[in-house]
Design a protein around this nucleic acid. Sequence first.
DNA 1: GTCATGGGCGTTATCGGTCACATTCCCGAA
DNA 2: TTCGGGAATGTGACCGATAACGCCCATGAC
Lengths: 350, 350
Amino acid sequence: MGVIGHIPEREAPRPRSASIWDVARVAGVSQQTVSRVINGKDRVSESTRAKVLQVIDELDFRPNRLAQALAGGPIRSVTVLTSDTALYGAAATLRGMEQAARAAGFSVGISVLERSLDAAEAAVRLNRSGQAVMVIAFDEAGVRTLGALPPEIPMTATIERPPDDHADAAWQVWLDDRAAAAHATRYLLSLGHSTVHYVAIPSSTSPTAQRTLGWRETLTDAGRPVPEPLQGGWSPRSGYLAARSLLADPTVTAILCGNDDLALGVMRAAREAGRRIPGDLSVVGFDDSPQSAYLNPSLTTVRLDFEGLGRACFGLLRRRLDPDGPAAVPVWSEPELIVRESSGPRPPAR
Amino acid sequence: MGVIGHIPEREAPRPRSASIWDVARVAGVSQQTVSRVINGKDRVSESTRAKVLQVIDELDFRPNRLAQALAGGPIRSVTVLTSDTALYGAAATLRGMEQAARAAGFSVGISVLERSLDAAEAAVRLNRSGQAVMVIAFDEAGVRTLGALPPEIPMTATIERPPDDHADAAWQVWLDDRAAAAHATRYLLSLGHSTVHYVAIPSSTSPTAQRTLGWRETLTDAGRPVPEPLQGGWSPRSGYLAARSLLADPTVTAILCGNDDLALGVMRAAREAGRRIPGDLSVVGFDDSPQSAYLNPSLTTVRLDFEGLGRACFGLLRRRLDPDGPAAVPVWSEPELIVRESSGPRPPAR
DNA sequence: GTCATGGGCGTTATCGGTCACATTCCCGAA
DNA sequence: TTCGGGAATGTGACCGATAACGCCCATGAC
C-alpha cells in the first residue's frame, strides 16, 4: 500500500496489424466508411474513397477474413472435399480449383474423405464457419458425401456422371466420359479388334458408370459381343490383378482401362503373360497422366481436362454465391484421344 | 398511413446452429462456464461439467472455429504451402500432414506457391487469421517462402537438406536424402559399374543438395571419377531431355535419378538410344512412387516415407503451438533401397 | 471469531469486422 | 422559403467465441 500506480509486468501486446479502426482513425472517417470502400458495395464520394485507399496502403491494412466471415460478410473461402489427392484426376482437378479460387481471392481448404469417415460428418466439419464447399465426386465416397451434404450449404461438385435430376445439374460439372469412352472403343474397333475388354475404375454410380456405358454402347451399336467388364480399383496393382485373369483368355486383343494407372498394371500383367504390346494386345488408358507418354510402350489414352473442370467448378460456385456477379463462362476442353504406342492393329488370327 | 404494424417481407433468418449462449441458457449457467468446459483449462465442478456436456450433446453444439480464432483462442488450423501437388513427394507429404492434422481436429488449408507469386506475399495471405503454417520446401519456391515467412508466424517445414543454422532445425524435419543417395550409389558401384551418373532434381540448395552430395561423396570415397551431374526438372520429360545428351557417351552404364519421374524419362531416352535396361544400362530412381513397381522394366528406387514425414511435420507444429501438450514423438521410417528390374551388373566391356 | 486462501462461476471488454438504421448535407421543386 | 429526397456518412447492435477480473462461499490456521 502506498505504492501508487504500480505497473504490473505485462507482456508487450503482440504487434497487431492494422484493423479497420486504425484505418478509419487515420483517414478521419468512420470504420463503416472504410468497410464501404473495401467492399465497394455502397457509394462513397470519390475524394473519401481515395483518402481511405491511400491510408489502407500506408498501413498495409488487409481485412481479417475471420472477422469478415464471422460478421456475416460474403463467403470467401472454400473447402474441397476429395478422397485421394494422390490420384492424377483428383490432383489435377484440385489444382484447377485452387488456381481459380486463389485468383478470385478465395482461400481454399482441403479435407480428405476417408473410408472410415461418415460422409455426413465431413459436412459437419465445415462447421458453418462461412465456408463454401466443392466436392470432387469421382468415386463412391465423393458421391456419398454429395448426398449427405445439407442443402443449405453452398456447394458445387465435379462428378463422373450427369445427374438424372435436372435441378441438381445446375451446380455440377462433368466431363463427357461417355463420349470419350465411346471414342476410344470405336478407335480400337477400327483397328480391327473383334471386341474390346474393359477394366473399370470403381464406379461411383455403377452400373451406369459413364465410361462403362460409352464402351458398352459402342460395342452394342457395332454388333460386337460385350464381355463382362472387370472391376478394378484405382491403382496399378489392381489393374495388374484384374488383367491376370483376363489374359488367360487368348482371344483378348484389346483392353480399355478406366485410368492410366490401371493400364500400367494391365501392361505389366500382359508382359508377364508373354503378350507383346501392341503386337498381341492393344491397351488404351484414360486421363493422360504426365507419365503416360514415357511408359514402355507409351500409352494410348484419352486426355481429360481436369484442371479446366476444376476451374469450371469454382466458376459455378462463384455464380452460386453471387448470382449477380460477373458471369465468367466456364470453359474446358473436350476429351481427346491421344494415340501412342500401346495400341495397334489386331494380331492375325493364328 | 393508417396501416399499422406492417410487417416487412423479411427472409426467415437462416437457421443458425447452437451457440455457446444457447448451451449456457439451457444448462442454466453462464457462457463463460460453457467455454471452460469446452476448453478444459479452468476448473469446473464435476456436476456442472456433466450438465453442460449433456446439453452440448443434445443441442449438437460445436464451437465456431472462426469465433474462437478471432477471440484469440488456441490455433486450430494450418495452411500448407506447397508448390506442386501433382508431384508424388509433395502429394504424399501433404497426405501425411492432412491425416495427422485432421486427427488432431485441425482444419487444413492449402495454398500453392506459383512461380509468379512472391513468396512473401504467400505469407501475408495467411492474413494473421490465427493460422499456423507448414511449408513443403523441397524445391526453390518452398525454400524462398521459408525465408520470407515472418518469424512471428508459427510454422514448421519439411525440407530437403538439414539447415546449417542449428536454431532453425528445431522446427524442420527432413529425410536422410544424403544417406539414401549414398546407399543407392554404393549399390550401383557394387554391381561393378565404374561410376554412376546423376540426373538431379531442381535443387533447393544447390550445389550442396543432399542427394547430389551423397552421390558425390560415395564416388569420391570409392575413388571413382565424378561426372558432372545433369540438371533435370521434376518431370519425365526433363529426364528424357537430360538423358539424351548423357547417352551420347557409350561409357555411361549407370544412372541415378533424383526422382522416379526423371528415371522414367531417362529409361525412355535409353530405349530410343538402343540401350537395353538393365543389360546395357542401370537406372535407379528416387521416391518409390506407386507406379515404379509396374514400369517396364520395374524401377529400382529408394523408398522415402513422405507420409511419415508429413505427420512428423505436423507433430512438430503441435509442439510448437503448445509446448506443454502431449509430446508425441514423431516417427518416420528410414529410406530404403528397393531393388527391382532396372538395375543390374555392369555390361562386359566390348 | 477473523482472515487468508482458493475453487467455482458470472460480468464485461474485446477480437475485427458487417448490417440495419439513423443522421447530415445539399439540391431542386412546390 | 420550405420541404422532399437521395447521396454520403456515422452510430450502435451483433456475429460467437475467449480473457481478465471480480465476486461469493467454504475451508482451515491462528
